[in-house]
């Protein structure tokens, strides 16, 4: 049988248990909402505006750099699995693969994109 059936069962049970726990809290807990209690928490000060506002774009740069290296690492996994059976040439191919991307990291670094400014 397909191994993913077990993973699917884990996902299903992993959803059932927290839903059950939260439902238990919903059933046994008191429900007395009022506007003050439901207002957004901002250390006791009246909340100013919405939270859904523009944030620092720097986060976006880091996700972009991450995306490239994530894909790179995923490419390297099959290489790593087979490495023991292949000779030195496979290692050299891997080194070339990583070296090309290290150029990208150095470029990003030199451009000052890795600074939190």
């Amino acid at each position: 049988m397909n191994e993913w059936i077990y993973v699917a069962l884990f996902i299903i049970v992993g959803l059932i248990i927290p839903i059950g726990a939260i439902l238990a809290g919903f059933i046994f807990g008191p429900k007395k909402p009022n506007p003050v209690k439901q207002s957004t928490y901002e250390c006791g000060i009246e909340p100013v505006g919405e939270a859904w506002m523009q944030f620092k774009a720097q986060y976006y740069i880091f996700v972009l750099v991450f995306l490239v290296f994530d894909v790179e690492a995923v490419f390297l996994f099959p290489w790593a699995v087979k490495l023991g059976h292949l000779g030195l040439y496979a290692v050299i191919e891997g080194i070339i693969f990583v070296a090309i991307l290290v150029v990208g990291l150095v470029y990003t670094w030199r451009k000052g994109m890795l600074e939190w400014a």
Binding site: L64, V65, V68, V71, E72, F75, I96, F97, V98, I100, L101, V103, G104, L105, Y107, T108
Partner: peptide, 8 residues
């Protein structure tokens, strides 16, 4: 790898 470099 070169493609990823270009993207970055």
């Amino acid at each position: 790898s070169v493609l990823l470099l270009a993207a970055l």
